[in-house]
């Protein structure tokens, strides 16, 4: 495969792996926030910010972890036929159907970007008493969608390499 494609795959995979590994530890942030929520409720005043920040963390967890999950092959597929195919045949099918994945992610990104711009234009805040700005979480989501698109393209390159019987170095 051409050098720039190999470099693309190497860098995108490595970057997404790092982001995903960071997101992975997000579960402890969620646990921490929720534990604080029950402690503060029991012993002091209930916190205004806990539930909502846990929700933001949850979104960051699965959106930023999305590309790494693709790498880990964690996304379930209906393997009625797929399960019996050879790796090359799978790669052939994936090389076409991955465009549906990319298309879906692109549509998400478009909507996310529009929503992010709205948040900037109007200084949008959450409707809760805590009233956090909403642009940061939307920015995180858009970033996650972009990285997933880049990851999907990387998967495509890997499939093409497999079909051509060459390695990506």
């Amino acid at each position: 495969m051409p050098g720039f494609i190999c470099a693309y795959v190497t860098y995108v995979d490595a970057f997404n792996r790092r982001i995903g590994r960071l997101a992975m530890y997000g579960i402890f942030l969620m646990v921490g926030v929720l534990m604080w929520s029950s402690i503060s409720k029991t012993f002091f005043m209930p916190s205004l910010w806990t539930l909502e920040s846990a929700q933001f963390l949850m979104v960051a967890y699965y959106v930023l972890g999305g590309a790494y999950a693709i790498q880990l092959n964690a996304n379930v597929r209906m393997d009625l036929f797929y399960g019996n195919w050879s790796p090359v045949k799978r790669a052939w099918f994936d090389a076409f159907t991955v465009f549906f994945l990319i298309f879906y992610l692109a549509v998400l990104l478009y909507g996310g970007f529009e929503s992010l711009m709205y948040s900037f234009d109007y200084g949008q805040r959450s409707r809760t008493a805590w009233r956090p700005y909403l642009w940061p979480i939307k920015a995180v989501m858009c970033f996650g969608f972009v990285m997933m698109i880049l990851q999907a393209i990387s998967q495509l390159f890997k499939d093409i390499a497999l079909i051509r019987g060459v390695a990506i170095k």
Binding site: M45, P46, L48, L51, R127, T128, A129, R131
Partner: peptide, 15 residues
């Protein structure tokens, strides 16, 4: 939201 902002003056925790 606005009622919550007001009620917070009396110790209410708006959700």
């Amino acid at each position: 939201p606005t009622a919550g902002r007001f009620l917070a003056k009396f110790g209410v925790v708006p959700v």
